[in-house]
């Protein structure tokens, strides 16, 4: 899902950076000091979760779980996922430096959207009800991320159109897996620690 340096055109890179700065500022605004430890530890757990490889048929995919991050963190998911991407680029060599903004927007904006749209449904009703909406949120977030990646590639040049389509088709199974996993994770969290999603006011969102 990472785009690398040198592939995108300058307007796309600059636009991505500008939107990312806005998103981070917005996220930090929703992050009071009291919440920083929780956001930091959750950010770290999403980082670790993204290293999990899940089998699909003969192959395996690694998780992104940006939808789950958005559902749990709300706006704070933006800076949290940005930090994850920054650390991945600097210490693992995944992605790039100038494209950090574009990558952050592609991954974190769908997360925030999924959080804003589906969080009310996830926190209401029975755990199963929450899990189903959580699964939908997780799947939608990855779908939007994939579309955003394809879109940033296509904006940069027609020669990427084929690659962009391939990215989308290749990620359809990933969307299904992420939806299932997010749903299951929400189901467990709702049963074990219901207050994780409770504080709608003055909480994360």
């Amino acid at each position: 899902m990472h785009i690398v340096d040198g592939a995108l055109s300058n307007p796309v890179v600059i636009g991505g950076a500008v939107v990312a700065v806005g998103g981070i500022a917005m996220g930090l605004k929703h992050l009071p000091l009291e919440r920083i430890p929780a956001a930091g530890v959750l950010s770290a757990s999403f980082f670790v979760a993204s290293l999990i490889h899940v089998p699909i048929g003969p192959s395996s995919v690694h998780l992104i779980l940006n939808g789950l991050a958005g559902l749990v963190l709300g706006w704070a998911a933006f800076p949290a996922l940005f930090v994850g991407l920054l650390l991945q680029a600097v210490f693992f060599g995944f992605g790039g430096l100038t494209v950090l903004g574009v990558n952050a927007v592609n991954i974190a904006l769908p997360a925030v959207l999924a959080g804003l749209l589906f969080r009310p449904m996830v926190s209401r009703g029975s755990p199963l009800h929450g899990a189903i909406w959580g699964g939908i949120g997780g799947g939608v977030a990855i779908a939007v991320t994939t579309l955003a990646v394809a879109f940033s590639l296509m904006l940069s040049g027609d020669e990427f159109a084929a690659a962009a389509k391939l990215v989308f088709v290749a990620h359809i199974p990933v969307m299904a897996v992420e939806a299932l996993l997010t749903g299951a994770a929400i189901y467990l969290a709702r049963r074990v620690k219901p207050e994780l999603f409770l504080d709608a006011k003055g909480g994360w969102a």
Binding site: A38, L42, S45, A49, P55, L180, T182, A184, L188
Partner: peptide, 17 residues
């Protein structure tokens, strides 16, 4: 498998909180 991994991630989140 997917359910177990999901529970694994969910448990990690609960413990993280």
């Amino acid at each position: 498998t997917y359910r177990s991994y999901g529970y694994l991630v969910g448990m990690m989140l609960v413990r993280a909180i």
